[in-house]
């Protein structure tokens, strides 16, 4: 794993992966949204508003996935002092916060015609709101120190504490209120959603994931370049 700790090697690999991830994201999102908006049937109860789901559900998956990925990167950073893991965690959290925010906004837009209110304190939306706050805390802590290394370390500990707490929070919030429909894709007895709706959903989900990969690699690259610029600036100041 430390083979990839070399920024130059990482940049070379990232440059090779980026076009595939980028074009893949554009293609999957294009096909997925076309299927979702034009081909997939309207729901017999929810009508056309069901199409919000094709953005809402993948964003919610991504928001959770990115938090776990960030926690894994943070663990790698704390255990092996892997320098790129820190950069990956830093690059991920604003993207995760963006997906959590998108989930909240689309949930609210969907709730207006369905529940008749912009905001309903139902279990899943509420736990997503708390996850959004956890992301904001991580971002704030990351930038709270003069010394970037200290910010990395503190944020990594916070991400690990957060990832232990996410299931507890999720459980407690479900305990507190359940008004949302029960899960319909990830179930032991197979998805209850019809395949004409499942495929567009999975394709957009893949598109979102590739979009995340593209964005994280770009952000990591720019972070490395920024660090290099700072080092060069310092060297020039010392020389003069």
């Amino acid at each position: 794993m430390h083979r990839f700790a070399n920024p130059a090697r990482f940049t070379r690999i990232a440059d090779r992966v980026l076009p595939f991830a980028g074009f893949g994201a554009v293609a999957a999102l294009g096909i997925g949204f076309y299927l979702a908006l034009f081909v997939a049937p309207a729901d017999y109860q929810q009508g056309e508003t069901v199409r919000i789901m094709y953005v809402h559900v993948p964003s919610a998956w991504m928001a959770l996935f990115i938090y776990v990925a960030m926690a894994v990167a943070s663990a790698a950073a704390l255990i092996w002092r892997h320098p790129l893991a820190d950069v990956a965690a830093k690059a991920s959290s604003p993207i995760g916060a963006g997906f959590a925010f998108l989930t909240l906004v689309t949930g609210s837009l969907w709730g207006r015609p369905m529940w008749g209110t912009w905001w309903e304190w139902d279990g899943r939306l509420t736990s997503m709101l708390i996850l959004f706050f956890l992301y904001l805390g991580h971002m704030a802590l990351m930038h709270a120190f003069e010394d970037q290394q200290r910010g990395y370390r503190a944020a990594a500990v916070l991400a690990l504490v957060g990832v232990i707490n996410v299931p507890i929070i999720k459980f407690s919030v479900d305990w507190w209120a359940t008004l949302h429909q029960p899960a319909s894709v990830l179930r032991l007895d197979g998805p209850t959603i019809h395949s004409s709706m499942l495929w567009p959903l999975l394709i957009t989900a893949l598109g979102f994931k590739l979009y995340f990969v593209t964005l994280v690699l770009l952000r990591m690259k720019s972070e490395l370049i920024a660090a290099r610029l700072r080092a060069l600036d310092l060297a020039r100041l010392k020389a003069s």
Binding site: I130, L134, L158, V161, N165, I168, I169, F171, S172
Partner: peptide
């Protein structure tokens, strides 16, 4: 940092 973790 702390308030979201206080929810449970």
């Amino acid at each position: 940092l702390v308030l979201p973790l206080y929810v449970p």
